[in-house]
Structures are given as C-alpha cells and as structure tokens.
C-alpha cells in the first residue's frame, strides 16, 4: 500500500501554541521561517460545530458492516440534519444506540443494524425512537485496544 505524502501532524488548539521553527538570537534567521504553516489540527478536521459535537464509545458488533467496531469512538454532530442513509445515534428504549437511518418500503423512517451475520431488522418510528444526533466520523486507535 502506498502512503503518499506524510503530513506533519500536531495536536491541540491552533490558537494557543505559537509555532516557531527557529529560535536564533544572533546570526541569520532560518530561511524556512517565512514558510511556516499551521500544521494540521484534528479539531478543525473532525469538529465542524463544537457546541453540538459529542463523543460516544461504541459497544457491540451490530454496525461492523458500516465499519464501526466495538470500542470505536464515534463523533456525533447534533446540528446535522439526519437523512436517509445517515449513521445516527438514536434513543431506543431509553438507551443510546447507533444505527443506520433508512427509509422503509412504505416510506417511513426506520433504523437498521449493519452486520452481515444478523438478518436486517428494521425498527420504525412507530415503535418509538428519537434521533439523538448524526455520526460524522469514527475514531479508532490501532496501537491500543
């Protein structure tokens, strides 16, 4: 697998950490100083609406078809409009549950799991669920369980 360009990556808020390449007091400044970029900020990449964004941890394997695994952190943006096909967190029986939102044959909205091992079960809005928020990304660390 080709990795292409490797970008330098920096954590934390951009505004609080000034970035200087060189701290030369005497002599010539580094010629690269004028070209310093901000680096990459994961907050900027993952969080479009900070006030509406929450992180949840996934428990269970019913969404592995959507490449969401047990232990993953899902980023939920409550300001996004849920659409047909969105991965959502919904409240089902008083529990926060991750599902795919899907229009059923009769035009109503339903929730489906995504695991090829299980038969698809559709939960329609008639059965009573509310959408808590729309999943905007998934975070998974590979170096620890």
């Amino acid at each position: 697998m080709s990795c292409g360009i490797v970008y330098p990556v920096r954590f934390g808020s951009l505004l609080t950490v000034p970035l200087y390449a060189s701290r030369v007091r005497a002599g010539f400044p580094s010629p690269a100083d004028d070209y310093i970029e901000r680096g990459l900020d994961f907050n900027e990449y993952l969080v479009a609406h900070p006030a509406a964004t929450f992180c949840l941890r996934v428990s269970g394997d019913s969404m592995i078809g959507a490449r969401i695994f047990s232990g993953d952190i899902i980023v939920v943006d409550r300001s996004l409009q849920p659409r047909n096909g969105s991965i959502v967190v919904a409240v089902v029986d008083g529990e926060l549950t991750v599902k795919r939102l899907q229009k059923t044959a009769d035009g109503r909205m339903g929730l489906v799991s995504e695991n090829p091992l299980y038969p698809p079960v559709v939960l329609t809005d008639e059965g009573g669920f509310t959408i808590w928020g729309v999943v905007s990304s998934v975070i998974r660390r590979m170096d620890r369980p």
Partner: peptide, 22 residues
C-alpha cells in the same frame, strides 16, 4: 463526566434488539 473525560464518554449500543422490534 460524559463530555470532559475520555474514559467516561457515553456508550452507544451497537446490538440487535431482534426480540423487541417490529
């Protein structure tokens, strides 16, 4: 501390409620 501590963020269940669905 649902929103301020990584170890305490809420859990989203990914299990099938096959029994009580319809």
């Amino acid at each position: 501390r649902y929103t301020t501590c990584w170890d305490e963020i809420p859990v989203a269940m990914a299990v099938d409620h096959a029994g009580d669905l319809r």
